[in-house]
């Protein structure tokens, strides 16, 4: 067993990460999937260029690439680390997309192949100015924030506590603030949030639609 200094400096390498991925349980993997979808939905109109898989891959790459993020297995589980990383990356994408327009995830950037092909010119990967036919088509399949909010409200309109909890969530209140505002216990809050969650998953099993 190494000293605490060794422990502190231990950063997981690819093989250790690979083994940790193989050890993730089905429940942990499903939770990661739901979290990735949630963060993508949170990006709203900025998320058209991304999928939940992009976010998962980006989190993993940022963990492995030197100088970006370091996973210390002794300190945090892989599952918790990836969730924290996805939260941070999706916030960065949102900030960057607002300032520069939708960005291309690093996992999408082409690299030279073994045969020595040159990487695709970055500018070839950026859409030309003006309406993009693909984005236009997708745009027609999207819902507006108003449509989505109204649909979510309908999901719990007959449930007293979940509907008032939802009202508090809409104004941006977090768990403790909601409990204080409504005078409910943590158990009641969690039960209400889980009901909203369950009904939203049942309504959109593959994750919420993109927002226009």
């Amino acid at each position: 067993m190494g000293s605490w200094r060794d422990m502190e400096s231990h950063v997981a390498g690819p093989e250790e990460v690979r083994q940790a991925i193989k050890s993730l349980t089905k429940a942990e993997l499903v939770r990661l999937n739901h979290y990735a979808q949630n963060r993508l939905a949170r990006l709203g109109a900025l998320s058209w260029a991304y999928t939940g898989d992009d976010l998962l891959q980006e989190a993993m790459l940022s963990m492995l690439e030197e100088g970006r993020r370091y996973w210390r297995p002794e300190v945090v589980s892989l599952s918790d680390f990836l969730r924290g990383t996805m939260r941070s990356i999706s916030s960065n994408w949102a900030r960057k997309s607002v300032s520069d327009g939708p960005a291309v995830p690093a996992s999408h950037v082409a690299r030279p192949s073994d045969e020595g092909d040159h990487p695709v010119n970055f500018f070839d990967t950026v859409a030309a100015p003006g309406p993009n036919p693909e984005a236009e088509l997708l745009n027609n399949e999207y819902q507006t924030p108003e449509q989505l909010v109204i649909e979510i409200e309908k999901l719990v309109k007959d449930e007293l506590i979940p509907s008032v909890v939802l009202d508090e969530m809409k104004v941006g209140k977090k768990g403790p603030e909601i409990m204080k505002a409504l005078g409910i216990t943590e158990k009641e809050l969690r039960a209400a949030q889980l009901m909203i969650y369950r009904r939203a998953r049942a309504r959109w099993p593959g994750g919420m639609p993109h927002v226009r």
Binding site: T25, K26, A27, E28, V30, R31, H34, Y35, N38, R39, A41, R42, G44, S79, R83, R87, T144, P145, E146, L148, V149, I152, V165, L166, M169, K170, V171, G172, K173, K174, G175, R190, Q193, L194, I196, Y197, R198, A200, R201, M208, V211
Partner: peptide
């Protein structure tokens, strides 16, 4: 402001995913 409301809901749902155990999320799925 429906956009803000939706963001609040999604952040609340993210909080739900984080607070719940993986087994609870699996059961919901």
């Amino acid at each position: 402001d429906y956009r803000k409301e939706l963001e609040g809901i999604l952040d609340g749902l993210a909080e739900t995913i984080e607070a719940a155990s993986p087994e609870e999320i699996l059961a919901e799925a």
